[in-house]
Simulated assay, not measured.
Amino acid sequence: MVSFVRPQFTRSRIRAAGKRIVKGTATPEDNAVLENFRGSHAYILNTFQANIRNHSRETSRSVGQRLKRRNTILDKLLREPNMPLSAMHDIAGCRMIFKSLQDLNDVRTSMHGARWRHSLTHESDRYDYINKPKTTGYRGIHDVYEYHVNSIGGIPWNGLKVEIQYRTLPQHAWATAVEVADLITSNRIKFADATAHYLRYFQLASEIIARTAENSNSCCADLGNKELAEEFSLADRRLGLLQTFDNLRGTSSRGLKFRRNTLLIFKFEVEEGEDALEFRTYENVNRAIEAYDELEKEYGERADIVLVRGESEENIRDAFRNYFSDARAFVDLIREGLKML
């Protein structure tokens, strides 16, 4: 039986640790507080993925889970200095991908009507980036739940939060391409912290996909079809991303033998003939978390490491395609979309 990491520190202690870590004045105990806080979210991930599958069976294309990386946590604290570590709501994340917007809405409605004690922490439209796309072009819907149970076994985790992401396949293809571009160009398009050329490229791409694949709009609704196609084509001639994505074959993922807990290690610098992606799998989630911490210390900024959980190898591949350098769905959607404009 798996023994999950239990929360050991108060919210005020977690908040204080986060402040000192960001300021660079952290003590060894502060770092231990962060690792305990992050690791304790594995328990609610395990609980929510079971609930999610009950509501999305036969509907969602895939369901994936991940714990936020230490460096990503620190980066978010720096980007949002008024947000305390104890209030960060996406350390635990579940992602559901659907074939259609109707399927997405049906499952989300079912989740909202669930008879559980976990509470939605916001108004239902607060993180609806489909009806109100982000200025970057991101589309999808996020829900944040606060974990709450009465059972003695689960009470220690009450109050922790989990973020659930809902995306359609076209929306996921765009988000995957952004993350692959960030990995191979060292940009931060995902956080709107990149050169203007890259930011505009993905704004235009999002509009093309929304307009031609889902009969909707994104962040460039003011452009006519001809103007949109011409500007994107010019942007792609400048950056060459479609051809770059098309050349990525995801060969780094060959030989993956799935287990429930998988560490994906995307290395930024590799020797000739060496795979950029390394994976390690574990039956025990606590051992996976320990290895996660060890590898982050070993690689530092030289790799992007994430702990993912899923029910099958295909599940992990679908939900975390960016780590397999697979942006081919994006390429197909854009090329087909340009023909339709």
Rank of each mutant, 00 (worst) to 15 (best):
residue 178 V to L: 03
residue 179 E to W: 09
residue 180 V to T: 12
residue 181 A to T: 15
residue 182 D to H: 09
residue 183 L to S: 14
residue 184 I to T: 08
residue 187 N to H: 10
residue 189 I to E: 00
residue 191 F to G: 07
residue 192 A to R: 11
residue 193 D to Y: 10
residue 193 D to W: 03
residue 194 A to K: 04
residue 195 T to V: 10
residue 196 A to L: 09
residue 197 H to M: 07
residue 199 L to K: 08
residue 199 L to R: 10
residue 199 L to Q: 11
residue 200 R to S: 01
residue 201 Y to T: 00
residue 202 F to E: 02
residue 205 A to E: 00
residue 206 S to V: 02
residue 209 I to M: 05
residue 209 I to K: 05
residue 210 A to V: 10
residue 210 A to M: 09
residue 213 A to V: 03
residue 216 S to M: 11
residue 219 C to K: 06
residue 219 C to W: 09
residue 220 C to E: 15
residue 220 C to D: 06
residue 220 C to N: 06
residue 221 A to C: 10
residue 224 G to Q: 05
residue 225 N to H: 12
residue 227 E to C: 05
residue 228 L to G: 04
residue 229 A to M: 05
residue 230 E to D: 13
residue 232 F to T: 02
residue 232 F to P: 02
residue 233 S to L: 11
residue 234 L to R: 15
residue 234 L to C: 09
residue 235 A to N: 04
residue 235 A to R: 08
residue 237 R to P: 02
residue 237 R to K: 15
residue 238 R to Q: 14
residue 238 R to E: 14
residue 239 L to Q: 01
residue 240 G to S: 01
residue 241 L to Y: 06
residue 241 L to K: 03
residue 242 L to H: 00
residue 243 Q to N: 11
residue 243 Q to Y: 05
residue 244 T to N: 07
residue 245 F to P: 00
residue 246 D to A: 15
residue 247 N to G: 15
residue 247 N to K: 13
residue 249 R to Q: 13
residue 251 T to N: 14
residue 252 S to P: 08
residue 253 S to A: 14
